[in-house]
């Protein structure tokens, strides 16, 4: 039962991702991406990581995707953008990147075959994660906090309106 749940979620995640990345309209793509993220959250839950699943929904599907939505709304991409995107998805453009990606995938699968194993099915509680996080990984937490700080400052800086010289004012 649980196994079939896993495979269903996996198929949903994969197909939603593919659909998201092939849409011409950014808003539609975003909806598919959220579906994909929710499916991955289900996978996390099944893999015994409920805390990670919750965070996936909260931060990925919630916060980050909402940021995307904001930006798309602000930019208000029109029909012309959609048209050019559709042209860009012509099969001719797919061939080389497609071959390369397929090769990479095969390499990864070949590597994975070396270590066949089952997932244990033992849940890892948020408490253990917290202990680990503030125990041996405390330095990584500090680094992550600095990274987020830098992201904050950078986003604030980039969000300002610059006096653009060569392009008209906006």
């Amino acid at each position: 039962m649980m196994e079939s749940l896993f495979y269903i979620a996996a198929v949903v995640a994969l197909s939603a991702t593919i659909l998201a990345l092939t849409r011409a309209n950014a808003a539609h793509a975003l909806i598919y991406l959220i579906v994909s993220l929710l499916a991955v959250a289900v996978l996390f839950f099944l893999l015994g990581a409920p805390f990670a699943a919750a965070l996936e929904i909260l931060i990925y599907a919630g916060a980050i995707m909402v940021l995307f939505v904001f930006v798309i709304m602000m930019l208000n991409l029109g029909e012309a953008g959609e048209e050019s995107e559709r042209k860009g998805l012509h099969p001719r453009n797919w061939i080389i990147p497609g071959i390369m990606t397929a090769l990479l995938f095969m390499e990864l699968v070949y590597a994975l075959e070396q270590v066949p194993a089952l997932t244990s099915g033992v849940a890892v509680s948020p408490k253990e994660v917290g202990i680990m996080l503030f125990g041996p990984y405390v330095l990584a937490v500090e680094l992550a906090s600095m990274l987020l700080m830098a992201g904050l400052v950078g986003a604030y800086h980039l969000g300002r309106r610059f006096n653009v010289r060569n392009v008209g004012s906006n």
């Binding site: 649980m2 196994e3 896993f6 495979y7 099944l46 893999l47 015994g48 994975l112 075959e113 270590v115 066949p116 194993a117 089952l118 997932t119 244990s120 099915g121 033992v122 849940a123």
Partner: peptide, 8 residues
Amino acid sequence: GGLQVPLE
């Protein structure tokens, strides 16, 4: 309950 799918 744990999930018993192959890790790969």
